[in-house]
Amino acid sequence: MEIIAIILGGVLINNFVFMQYLGLCPFVGVSRQLETALGMSGAVIFVMTMASAVTSVLEIYVLAPLGLGYLRTIAYILVIASFVQLVEIFMKKAAPGLYKALGIYLPLITTNCAVLGVTMLNVRHSYGIFLSTLNGLAGALGWSLAIIIFAGIRERWRLMDIPKTLEGFPLALVSTGLMSLAFLGFQNLFKAVFR
C-alpha cells in the first residue's frame, strides 16, 4: 500500500512542481521544446533515483550511526554533484546532440532543488533504502510529467500571438499556476484507502 501511495503521491497528488515548488528553474528553462524536455526528464529521473538510493545508504550506514547528521547537507550535495558529472560524461559521449541541446541545464541539475529536495524529504519521512529510491523515482516521474505537459503547451505558443512583454517567466508562472489549479483535483486522492 505504501508503495502505491508513494508513487501516486509523487506523480499526481504532491507533484514536485505543482504542489511542492521544487525544481522550478529547469521546469521553466528547459520547457520550450518537447525534445529537450524529454531529454531533461531522462536525466532528472536517472539522477534523482540514484541520488535517493545513494544518499539513503549514506544516511543509514554512515551518517546516522556516527551521529553526523549535521553534515548531511554537505554530504548529500557532494554525492549529487558527482552523479551529475557522471551523467554529463555519459551524455557527451552517447548523445552529443542532446548534450548540446540541454546546454547549461545539465550541470545545473546539481542546483535543481528537486534532487536535493527529494533526498531531504526521504530523511524527513525516515524512509528506508527501498522506499527512498522509490520516492526519488516517483518524484522524478512527477517532475517529468509536469515538464512534458508544459512543453506541449509552450510549443503551441510559438504559433500564437503571445504578448511579447509577458513571454517567458511571467506567463510561465501564470500557466504553472493554472496547471497546479487543475492538479488540485488530485488532492486527498485515495486518502480513505491509504489511512
Binding site: I148, I149, G152, I153, E155, R156, M179, L181, A182, F183, L184, G185, F186, Q187, N188, L189, F190, K191, A192, V193
Partner: peptide, 26 residues
C-alpha cells in the same frame, strides 16, 4: 470517476476536463 470514487472532492468533472486540457497539445 477516479476523483468521484476515491478523490477528495465529491465531483471530478471540472478537474478532469482541466487536466485533459493540459494534455490536449500532447
Amino acid at each position: 470517476v477516479l476523483i468521484r470514487l476515491w478523490g477528495g472532492y465529491p465531483e471530478g468533472v471540472s478537474y478532469s476536463i482541466l487536466l485533459m486540457n493540459l494534455v490536449t497539445p500532447l
